[in-house]
Write a protein that binds this DNA or RNA. Structure first.
Lengths: 341, 341
DNA sequence: TTGTAAGCGTTATCAT
DNA sequence: ATGATAACGCTTACAA
């Protein structure tokens, strides 16, 4: 257990004041570049490391960003987090990550912890049953910036990072129509979350634009779990006039549904063309491979952190850019490909 | 931007000393439980929150645990992290998470960042090309505890949390043999990592125990990527006497391989029975569903954090329990089920 | 049971 | 360009 080296130790050895050492280490312009070099190399030699707690205490900031996500164990979320970690790390910010497990109550507790940890900023993707941002009021009041990503709350005055889910839902549905589908079912997620409500909107718009009827019996609002996929499959089997197209708001759910149907002899894409959402790794390995909307998770994470840091450094006022829209991509695979084109 | 409340503010209002307030808030035994109550409610009322940085600075500890994993975007790792987050959160520890992206160089950089962040302890799952723990020496020298999980380094004197991969590999292989397989191929991961080397060992042991030859042409050392799965499928197709059983050290790779084979008309499990590893969500949704080793990720994460915290609190000397072995489970599904039993 | 006071390692302000 | 000094908010001997 060696004793920790401080700027006092360096100062003493170099016959300088701690203040000068501190300034040199922080690359203060008023310090002679020669002494800077001397101090830097001495610090290196002595194995000095800055004490973030002393620094944070003095500076009244923490270089820490809080992240609250619905679940950590989802393929999409982990790519988002990977992107966040990358940028935060490069900018020497720390990340505190916690999960709401899709419950507002836990989300409120998480928010409190983040607040007590004095995060400099907050990145949030909302739980499925969250319908106000009141539990983040403490942050707003203290002027701590917050950015919502993916699961956002559109009408609220808070910077959001999303893809255009209406358009993506439209494209997915239009693609199915282009493949000859006339009766398209949609398995949606909780419409309390705009991501799912918007995909549903896009689905309806596409139907309308192509003069197809919007049939409520072809719409299922679910939690997009594996079981929901199986249930959807069972429902399809029971229908008198089953759909010939299926748009599911999540790949994992889509794949579960497909599996169940295929086991009962439904041919995909022959009898039923399927499109998912997210480009989960499973979409590639499944047979037939799943047509889906590729969703830039890594990039979303990177941009979220970068925007927050820019804001913290005063390089970009967050309030001016209120919504950041990322590109997505429809990836056509075998689950929906009926024509060679 | 309201002014931050400190223990001095509370002390002044209550005509007490800051020391008493501090002690009361920390539930110090020597404080009158009555004054404790008064102080607690006043703190609550004034919206007091403790300043972790002042506290850490004084206490010389950070209540922060560092976590280094190979990749954040893997299904298994995210369940581990979910478990870690849960326990850490409950014990009001923070987690700093970073990824090595399977590179020692990045792992070294991560370690340095963790060190500079003054984490109280470290949890590490090693990159595929790490073959010494030298870059963690700074931690050992300072007496900062470190626990390895999943991707461990067995011969080293460092607490490890793992499953018995030899036994699991044995069980997977023995299961295939039990289903009548005589020529079993094994697609392994980098044998620099004991998790994969051990599964391979188990595979060989099972063959020997059942008087089956160990044939090197039936062994592939890979990185367990999707492409490796496709390559394995191609290799199988090219073989004069193809295998009738396949044990892959990772579900995702197994599923890729299965998909490619099935597309070429190979029947599973009829022609080839397959067993994977990890119980990735994909194992359930694939057709046929994949037999695999269920690997308790969530639990592994929980235990890792709990052990570390116990150690930090002096409740359990880490060095005494040198390896924690978790249970795993062979989950038999359709990809290998040939007999009804 | 409570109070006093020093100190944790930095950085910002004011001098020089 | 550098130095002296006072915070930042908390904890903990030591005293009372």
């Amino acid at each position: 257990m060696e004793k920790e080296v401080t700027i006092y130790d360096i100062a003493k050895l170099l016959q300088l004041s701690p203040a000068t050492v501190s300034r040199a280490l922080n690359d203060h312009p008023a310090i002679n570049s020669n002494t800077k070099d001397i101090i830097a190399s001495k610090a290196q030699e002595m194995g000095y490391r800055s004490n973030r707690f002393a620094s944070n205490l003095r500076r009244q900031r923490t270089s820490t960003i809080g992240v609250i996500v619905p679940r950590l164990d989802s393929a999409f979320m982990s790519t988002v987090l990977a992107g966040m970690e990358k940028v935060a790390n490069e900018a020497s910010y720390n990340l505190i990550i916690s999960q709401s497990l899709e419950s507002v109550r836990k989300e409120m507790a998480n928010a409190k912890t983040m607040f007590d940890s004095r995060v400099d900023g907050l990145l949030v993707s909302l739980a499925s049953d969250t319908d106000t941002l009141d539990h983040f009021d403490t942050f707003f009041r203290k002027g701590i910036p917050m950015i919502l990503f993916d699961r956002v709350m559109p009408q609220q005055n808070c910077t959001s990072i999303v893809i255009d889910n209406v358009k993506a839902g439209y494209d997915a549905t239009a693609h199915l129509i282009g493949q000859g589908c006339q009766r398209i079912m949609h398995v949606a997620g909780s419409i309390r979350r705009s991501v799912y409500a918007d995909r549903l909107k896009g689905y309806k718009l596409a139907l309308l634009d192509h003069n197809l009827p919007v049939d409520d019996s072809l719409l299922r609002i679910t939690n997009l779990t594996r079981q929901d996929g199986l249930d959807a499959a069972a429902a399809i089997r029971r229908m008198d006039t089953p759909p010939d197209g299926l748009f599911v708001a999540s790949d994992f759910c889509a794949v579960s549904c497909m599996g169940a149907l295929m086991q009962e002899g439904v041919s995909i894409p022959g009898d039923l063309a399927v499109v998912g959402f997210n480009d989960d790794p499973v979409a590639q390995v499944i047979q037939p491979s799943l047509t889906t909307i590729h969703y830039p998770g890594q990039e979303m994470g990177e941009i979220a952190v970068q925007s927050l840091i820019n804001h913290l450094n005063g390089r970009l006022r967050i309030s001016t850019t209120n919504t950041i829209l990322l590109n997505y991509e429809l990836i056509v695979r075998n689950s929906s490909r009926r024509t060679e084109s």
